[in-house]
Design a protein around this nucleic acid. Structure first.
Length: 653
DNA sequence: CTAGGGTTAG
């Protein structure tokens, strides 16, 4: 055996790229204990090449046996960091306790390492802060490394509102004289920015001696996008002296998260023209933007981008790509990507991406099949799975299946939340079972929220039920007094039952309160072009031509039998004006532009921020027949595939 | 031994 041992050591020293842990395992396989030289450098080499929890543990025991670990805080620190990295903070802590017990209790480095380990491990914020307080009680001085870790914990979202504690520690950093350290300041700005404490973030920022630090600005940029102020974020971005890939990614994701994915696309082109290289995170953000826009062509482009650049496709990116294909209607590719995942690695999130994708496109039966397969393969459905399946049943009008699913959910002890009730109310309501929907609401074990009453109100609008609609609306006006959509829905119900007085009252009320319907907006893309239209848009460069085309379409529609649905206009105007207003709906302008500018037979892809209205829905059905074109519309709620005069939603949306 | 972007799915 000594010979083999010697050979192993030889290999180890000559070929450092050979994983010593592998050799170590080899030693174990030949049933002898492979203990390298009891020197720090040997263990250091072993630790550096550890590539998993198992190998870490293998090195740990001889370290303890040989007693080396007790003398080397550097080896100990590596073990601590390693265990934290592989999600074993308890093991990390036992190493730390051992080292502290061996007379290293005054080493700031060791305390810092353990605090950092907790800060990096999930769900250990409390432990990190407790350790900081123990450190202080042990009279060990925190330093410029300690404070950033602590501030990061105070900033982490899992830790709840730790801003007060953060302020206390800030004071301690000032007293310890570390408040003018670059990293301490950056961490402070980040912490305050994360909690929306703009005044304090700004104060620290202003007092910083080195102002052009990229990190500081990135935090503020992120704060603005999280607060929904994407314009201010852009202002910070524009003012930045130096932008790195994180600045670009922050701005790109800021746009997507604030519903301006098309802006992200524009900015991405600018990024390409700059000297900053996109990375895998950039790709993930852009794929998510394409999913949001429902743009398969661009989504594919970014998928190719990932392949060309040889980016590592981790679980997040893989799921994001799958989600993009599912949302953009390429369910075949989404399905292929799903199948490429090792079955043992498929968890609820992978299944949910697929299930929600099939559901969004109105494939109710397939959704239910997936749902059964998921359970057959031993993956537990969670609250999101049930939301997706229930909403799929609703979209496809599969009422009995939906009821069954709702029962099953309770058997599987997934507690139904308000959103699940909202899906079931939506499903029953659309199917015309308004009374059953109301009965369900009354049976709820907790107070129904706006989503639940909103689903009932929508159903009342579809089925023109003023009485139940009034009940739902009264609740909604109480729960969400500022939400314009509910007032609009109720006024549609009044209009449908010719209650013009009530319509006027409601509109006057909205006017007095300064409430405005969010502006409708449609986007069309073809080739390399993307065009956006507002309702009655006169800013688009070709608006005059588009208006002429819309008029032509209106005539063709009438000839084909389309009857304008005047209830889709809120305004008490002349009938003729109402028709005109309908023609200028953003999706009609966009589709007219698409018909003008694309070759016949080409599929038209539209995205709209709000739900498509009745009149446009009917018009799009007729247009798909008249021009023999497929029209794919992603509205605020789901996808519609118009083909040959019918829509994939079966007029159920 | 230090930060900063993405954490999915409805």
């Amino acid at each position: 055996m000594p010979l083999l041992l010697l050979q192993l050591r030889g290999l180890l020293s000559r070929k450092p790229f050979l994983n010593p842990c592998f050799l170590y395992s080899l030693g174990s396989a030949f049933s002898f204990s492979y203990i390298p030289d009891s020197t720090e450098s040997h263990y250091d080499l072993l630790l550096k090449s550890a590539d998993g929890l198992a190998s870490l543990r293998q090195i740990h025991s001889p370290l303890v046996v040989s007693g080396v670990v007790s003398q080397s805080i550097h080896l100990g620190a590596q073990l601590i960091a390693g265990y934290a990295k592989y999600g074993e903070p308890t093991s990390a802590r036992s190493v730390f306790d051992h080292l502290i017990g061996c007379g290293n209790e005054t080493s700031s480095f060791l305390w810092n390492t353990m605090i950092r380990a907790y800060a990096n491990a999930a769900g250990c914020s409390y432990e990190a802060l407790e350790l900081y307080s123990l450190m202080r009680r042990a009279q060990v001085s925190p330093n410029n490394y300690t404070f950033p870790f602590v501030f990061r914990v105070c900033a982490s979202s899992e830790a709840g509102s730790l801003i007060l504690l953060g302020r206390v520690v800030h004071g301690e950093a000032v007293r310890a004289g570390f408040d003018s350290d670059l990293h301490v300041e950056a961490a402070l700005v980040h912490m305050y920015a994360k909690w929306g404490e703009f005044g304090d973030a700004r104060k620290v920022f202003d007092e910083m001696p080195v102002k052009d630090l990229i990190g500081v600005a990135n935090s503020i940029l992120g704060m603005y996008t999280r607060c929904g102020d994407v314009q201010k974020a852009r202002l910070v971005f524009e003012k930045m002296v130096e932008r790195n890939v994180i600045s670009w990614n922050s701005m790109l994701s800021g746009y997507t998260q604030n519903g301006q994915a098309s802006e992200a696309l524009v900015l991405f082109d600018e990024m390409n023209d700059s000297y900053v290289e996109a990375n895998a995170v950039t790709a993930l953000i852009m794929v998510a933007a394409c999913a949001y826009l429902g743009s398969l062509r661009l989504g594919r482009k970014f998928h190719n981008f990932v392949i060309d650049r040889n980016f590592t496709v981790d679980k997040n990116l893989h799921n994001a790509l799958m989600d993009m294909y599912a949302k953009c209607g390429d369910l075949k590719t989404a399905w292929e990507m799903f199948n490429s995942i090792n079955p043992s690695m498929r968890d609820a999130s992978s299944w949910n991406v697929l299930i929600s994708g099939y559901g969004m496109h109105g494939h109710g039966r397939e959704t239910l099949n997936m749902f059964s397969r998921m359970q057959a393969e031993g993956v537990d459905p969670n609250h999101i799975t049930f939301t997706s399946v229930l909403s799929a049943c609703s979209h496809a009008g599969l009422v009995n299946e939906g009821r069954q699913c709702f029962d099953e959910m309770q058997k599987l002890s997934v507690a139904p939340e308000a959103k699940h009730y909202a899906c079931v109310v939506d499903m029953l309501g659309r199917a015309g079972k308004l009374q059953e929907a109301l009965d369900l609401i009354k049976q709820m074990p907790f107070p129904p929220n706006d989503a639940v009453w909103g689903a009932l109100l929508l159903a009342c609008k579809i089925h023109r039920n003023k009485e139940l609609g009034q009940i739902a609306a009264d609740k909604l006006f109480e729960l969400q007094p500022g939400h314009t959509g509910y007032y609009v829905l109720m006024s549609n119900i009044y209009a449908a039952s010719q209650r013009w007085g009530e319509v006027v009252n409601l509109r006057q009320y909205m006017k007095n309160k300064g409430m405005k319907k969010p502006a409708a907006f449609s986007v069309i893309e073809f080739g390399e072009e993307i065009h956006g239209f507002h309702t009655a848009d006169r800013e688009h460069p070709y608006w005059e031509e588009v208006y002429r085309e819309v008029e032509i379409l209106a005539v063709k529609l009438k000839m084909a039998g389309h009857v304008p649905d005047l209830s889709c206009t809120l305004h008490d105007m002349e009938e003729e004006d109402k028709e005109l207003a309908l023609n200028l709906h953003s999706e009609k302008l966009a589709v007219a532009f698409g018909i003008m500018r694309t070759e016949s037979g080409m599929t038209i892809y539209l995205t709209k921020n709000l739900r498509v209205c009745n009149d446009c829905h009917s018009a799009l059905k007729f247009l798909s027949h008249i021009f023999d074109r497929e029209i794919v519309v992603r509205d605020g709620n789901r996808f519609h595939h118009f083909k040959g005069g019918v829509c994939s939603c079966n007029d159920y949306w």
